[in-house]
């Protein structure tokens, strides 16, 4: 053993000797009581500075307990898991806890992290291109849950794109367009079962039609904390197309109404905070993007398939449609969580 390693071992031992002395003193002052079971889940700290804590895991330690202890938030368990390349903590294993987010953009020598935004429409037993059966949706969510994917909110994606927060390596966003009633009846119970968040993009003229969500159903889903409701235009018109003889000013005014109408409706009817917008038919042009920005909408979603790296243009995010005809293999192929590059 080198002298420096010996010094470290001595320091660790000294730390535990001090702790043991403190423990014995505390015992001597406390009233006699039954011997407590051996304490579990308190990993020994081997070293730390402002960037890392290195611990030796004990029985009972989990990624969650370590995150709670050292990062103050069990939800950051994935920071530790991703950094160490592990899904679970094994006793006796040295674990590095990064105290600051590392590699926020997810760029590695072999490629870059991307976040797929899945786009659903309708759910029902009559499968069609845009209608996914309950069984297929359940299988797809089950696949995400069992294979280490993290379904994140669109707000988390916004923080990632702005460079504020890292995301788990296999992050996925679930969105559902238009506002069909089947979201409430079929998709929501499945999302709730898995505790997966989702964003519904509603075109506000749809509300009131027989197959549309009601405001009450939307409120209930929002109360669950899993569902965000965001605007998808007023009438589902293609916002990039000018009407015949429509002046530029008239066109812009119409687009403004198509954007501001649902924003106002979502605020007043649901108390929602719109920050994103899904373009009808996925089409966007510069005037539409400009009006979005003026209305404080930071994210715009197209239907151009693919994953989004941290540097994706927030007003033209890629989004991948999930079709009724997708089987397990085609669904898996759409989960673009990493784009390989020749970056080495």
């Amino acid at each position: 053993m080198s002298p420096s390693v010996r010094r470290l071992a001595e320091r660790v031992a000294l730390g535990f000797a001090v702790a043991a002395a403190f423990f014995l003193q505390a015992c001597s002052l406390a009233p006699p009581r039954e011997a407590a079971p051996a304490r579990e889940g308190a990993a020994a700290v081997l070293a730390r500075d402002r960037d890392f804590v290195v611990v030796l895991a004990e029985k009972g330690d989990t990624l969650g307990t370590l995150a709670e202890r050292y990062l103050g938030d069990a939800a950051k368990a994935w920071w530790i898991g991703d950094y160490n390349g592990i899904d679970e903590v094994k006793p006796g294993r040295d674990i590095v806890v990064p105290l600051q987010p590392r590699n926020i953009g997810g760029v590695y020598p072999g490629g870059v992290q991307t976040v797929p935004i899945l786009c659903y429409h309708r759910f029902g037993s009559n499968r069609s291109k845009l209608s996914v059966t309950p069984a297929a949706f359940e299988q797809q969510m089950e696949y995400l849950a069992k294979n280490g994917y993290r379904v994140i909110t669109l707000s988390q994606l916004a923080a990632f794109l702005s460079g504020r927060e890292p995301l788990p390596k296999k992050s996925v966003v679930v969105t559902i367009d238009d506002g069909y009633r089947s979201i409430y009846e079929i998709a929501f119970p499945i999302l709730r079962k898995h505790q997966f968040p989702a964003t519904i993009f509603l075109y506000s003229d749809f509300v009131g039609l027989p197959d549309a969500l009601t405001w009450t159903q939307m409120q209930e889903m929002m109360r669950s904390g899993l569902v965000e409701i965001q605007p998808h235009s007023k009438s589902h018109a293609n916002l990039t197309l000018k009407l015949p003889k429509e002046s530029e000013a008239q066109y812009r005014e119409r687009v403004r109404n198509e954007i501001e109408g649902p924003v106002a409706a979502l605020k007043s009817r649901l108390g929602a905070t719109p920050f994103s917008f899904a373009f009808p038919y996925g089409d966007v042009n510069e005037p539409v993007a400009e009006i979005l920005t003026r209305n404080g909408l930071r994210l715009g979603l197209t239907v151009t398939p693919g994953g989004n790296p941290f540097y994706a243009y927030p007003l033209m995010l890629r989004r991948t449609m999930i079709f009724g005809e997708d089987d397990a293999a085609s669904f898996r192929a759409k989960l673009a969580v990493f784009a390989r590059t020749g970056a080495r």
């Binding site: 080198s2 470290l8 071992a9 660790v12 031992a13 304490r39 020994a44 081997l46 030796l56």
Partner: peptide, 16 residues
């Protein structure tokens, strides 16, 4: 709790 003590080969092993 298993604690790496003085001369614990685990610490040296981790470093290596």
């Amino acid at each position: 709790m298993a604690t790496p003590g003085r001369g614990d080969p685990r610490v040296a092993g981790i470093i290596e």
